[in-house]
Amino acid sequence: MGGGKIVAGCLAPHPPHLVYAENPPQNEPVAEGGWEQLRWGYERLRESLADIEYDAIVLLSPHWQTYVGTHFLGLPNFKSLSVDPVFPNLFRYHYDLSIDVDLAKAIHDEAQASGMPVKMMENPDFRVDYGTITTGHLFNPEWDKPLVVLSSNRSTAYYSVEVMQEMMIELGKATRRAIEASGKRVVVLASNSLSHRHFTTESELPEDMSKEHITSHAMHLWDMRMIKYMRDGEAQRILDEMPEFTEQAIAESDGGGLSWLLSTLDVPDYPAILHGYGTIIGTGNAIVEWPCHKHEEENS
């Protein structure tokens, strides 16, 4: 086969607060809104991609944490209740999602051929992590596209950001090769926040926006620096500064999602579109799209 391609790559964070605030029928708790800036950002992202045809969403969530290799959801369907163990008051979501097992297996095989430890997850009782569900819902509330879900290997904790990044760059390249060989059109999502220092208390009403702000000025500066690189088409600088960023901003990029995403996009040198930025319980979150399809059209 061949002719497959990545039509867009996005940074698509997953704080469960965003799903909570929206009150979809799948989620049990009820909110009075909140975090609109970010939810409007997701709306703009969806609109931006509304006319783009694609077959599958490939997603890496830092809340499926594996210490032994990278794992892939490997059954056609997962249906259950996802309760966030940290914010169970906000997120109890009844999910029913389908997996593009062929594409998952193709990426798995490609990564394996490159020497990476990988495994298909084929236990039907497995509960899909809340990061995957949240990003999946916010990106595509209709759930009408199959997903490929990769676990987050905790190599940052084991070794260092540098080693994590080397592994994620390899995994990103394998992902890209497998997608191209599949003949499918794919959107790639990294599901993570930027700076990731939480408040250690929660307000009486979690959606009380008068309490929401970044935890510190330093976190804000780091977030803005990363966003500037994204908007300026300087993805390489993000990779270069990833160790400092991840450590100093306690960034959720420690899970490897952002490095992997930039690698699947071949480290883009064209500007990304910032659809929104906001804080959630003090953490910094950006919704960002690299419009590969447009970039290709302009260059063909």
Binding site: W64, Q65, T66, Y67, V68, H71, P85, V86, F87, K119, M121, E122, N123, D125, F126, R127, D129, S151, H198, T200, T201, E202
Partner: peptide, 24 residues
């Protein structure tokens, strides 16, 4: 946990646990 400590208070929690790594 992030917001202080959490205490399990469901008198009879029931479910099926599958490990993130050792699901096989």
């Amino acid at each position: 946990s992030i917001i202080g400590h959490q205490l399990q208070a469901d008198p009879n929690p029931e479910w099926v646990m599958v490990d993130h790594d050792f699901h096989d």
